[in-house]
Write a protein that binds this DNA or RNA. Structure first.
Length: 112
RNA sequence: CGAGUAGAUUGGACAGUUGCGGUUGAAUUUUGAAAAAAAUCAUCCGAGGAAAGUCCGGGCCCCAUAGAGCAGAACAACGGCUAACGGCCGCCGAGGGUGACCUUAGGGAAAGUGCAACAGAAAAUAACCGCCGUUAUCGGUAAGGAUGGAAAGGUGAGGUAAGAGCUCACCGUGGAUAUGGAGACAUAUCUGACGUGUAAACCCUGUUCGGAGCAACACCGUGGUAGGAUUAAUCGCUUGCUCGGCGUAUCCUUUGGAGGUGGCAUUGAGCAGUAGUGGCAACACUCUGCCAAGAUAGAUAACUGUCCACGACAGAACCCGGCUUAUAGAUUUAGUCGCAUA
RNA sequence: CGAGGUGUAGCGCAGUUUGGUAGCGCACAUCGUUCGGGACGAUGGGGCCGCAGGUUCAAGUCCUGUCACCUCGA
């Protein structure tokens, strides 16, 4: 159940940017790629474009909170990278959750 | 009541549910020979006044080091505080403000060198015009000469052939003496005749400074590198087979990439106190109480409800003392000025 | 965490050493040349020298602070 691993290395992020499937909404961008393992791995990118350290941290927290609610209903065996956008730190996590739900449905990631 | 000055404190609050990081658990379960590790549960704690910029100063740690000096850099009235500082406090001088108060890199230009565009007679040995005496010559003089940021101490009077600190009064400035002060300095008296500005130009004088930084440093270290040992056993190549050789493998040593652990977070230049003593103050000493984040891709979030001023700037990364910069507001203390009333 | 560099016309750069006039190339405007355009020739406009303060008679230049961007080392 708690086999969620975070992506850490720069090479893994670059692999997803090159090969992964890209889905965009107004608050978050998602890259998805099938991996060889049986668990779900994810990473969050908050670039300098978003703002100062407070805004970057808030973006990470909002994305992590939204993902924690959707996590149990997703298929295993995928790598996901979330990229925060400029609006992300000013938005509540429920909004991010709704948009993330649409993107996951488009990527056909929900089990059942 | 209005305007303004100098400080201090604070930086949304409360309740509920879910979730995150850590401390401590003679708690429970699993693994393990043990040490211990993982999970669950309980308990307590969980960003700032600037955590920021990295501009100074230290602690800590490594390297170097007989001693001294040069170079270079920083600082610069005076007295103090401090572990130290380029910081802070007090005070003096200068400048600004009606005032509370504010600003101030504030040593030396009579040790030397350099520079001062344009304008102007001349930017520093007063060369020139001018004035006066005498008249080819020469001598005296710094009143006047449109400029300039700055023109030979300033203004006024006397004086003279013409002039001039040549003389006098006031003012500026240098020196000496006396008094006050811890000192910078201030005041008074006497005296000299005072050759512009620039040292944030070179420079001179005095003080301080060995270098590098927690990605430091210490330890562990599968693989790899280098060296050695063993062919008893396994695999591959060299040949169809055996021996032999090479590689792999095993063991020991060296080095130490990736990674991990410590450093690193309760004992410190620690925090709080309408506390006490000394001091104008910075600060020092004493007393009482407390132990208050510690991650390693990096923990504070989500939702609901209530209130108001509707929440600014903004996130620890080895730790402290300052400085600088950003900042919606709120509370509060002490002076000042103006108006009105008594 | 540490070290260094650059901000000047729309763009790319000089000038900063040793303070006094802000310049070069491309671009832009006008005129000439051509049947017309390009090229060429001539003329001209355009600057808070990143920002703030200070020293100086005078600052793009000297000093201090600050902002932004870039590069490098581990």
């Amino acid at each position: 159940m708690s086999e969620i691993v975070t992506l850490k290395e720069n090479r893994q992020f670059h692999l997803l940017y090159r090969r992964g499937k890209c889905l965009v909404s107004s608050t978050v961008v998602i890259y998805v790629l099938k991996n060889k393992y049986n668990n779900l791995r994810y990473g969050i990118t908050t670039g300098k474009k978003i703002g100062n350290a407070v805004k970057r941290s808030r973006s990470r927290r909002v994305i992590r909170a939204a993902f924690a609610q959707l996590n149990p209903s997703l298929k295993r065996g995928y790598d996901i990278v979330f990229v925060a956008r400029g609006k992300t730190p000013f938005v509540k996590s429920t909004v991010v959750k709704e948009e993330m739900e649409k993107l996951f449905a488009k990527a056909n990631l929900f089990s059942e």
